[in-house]
Write a protein that binds this DNA or RNA. Sequence first.
DNA 1: ACCCAGGTGGCCC
DNA 2: GGGCCACATGGG
Length: 233
Amino acid sequence: MSSIAYANALYKPPKTADLMKLYKLMFSRSGFLDWWPGDTKEEIFVGAILTQQTTWKNVEKAMANLKAAKLLSIKQLSNATTNEIGSCIKPSGYYRQKSNHLKGACSYILKNYGSLEGLFKLKTKELRKTLLSIKGIGPETADSIILYAAEKPTFVIDAYTKRIMGRVFGTSQDMSYSELKSLFESSLRPNTDLYNDFHAQFVELGKNYCKTKPLCGSCPVKVMCKYVKSSNV
DNA sequence: ACCCAGGTGGCCC
DNA sequence: GGGCCACATGGG
């Protein structure tokens, strides 16, 4: 047996109490984060697409440009040209792709459901499937929209979640999105408020610490490793 | 002059 | 189902 296979055989996934311990540690550090940063459901929807592989600061610039150009709504985005959208969203990167995706997604929703609210009437499972069928919306963006705009319980996984879970509980960096998602959803009750703040805490912690460098002495993640593991059941 | 950021689609096997 | 690559601007 290889050493990796041996480690996998010994590995035990975190239980409910372990996950809640981590959540409480992050909460006590940052407080309630009150996500998503966006005024309306439509802004949350747009922000979820714009924030792909980009910092929120750059998304804010793009959103401000869209707002100034009166393009920050489903209806206006579906009527605008991709050039108009693209010139607004340059700061958030991948602007040629994202302007196509934004226009396409908004047109699709408007045509088939009339509005975001119309789309959100779908049951969670069907809503997720529908979102995933839209170009430009992958698993993380779909779950962000469901959780933060539609306000239905689905656990959002991102790079920070994967990284912090690896460091605190030793989960593999090879875990797929769906594996990591079900790790949380099989242990935690489907509570929108908990899922909302849990993910927000991961991002808040992740973007400030331990990006790709080794753990530093004062890194909160390192402190959490000690606390969480010392009380492991 | 690098490296990275709250991923995703297309293509391939 | 998974591996690889292009996509693009802004900040460290």
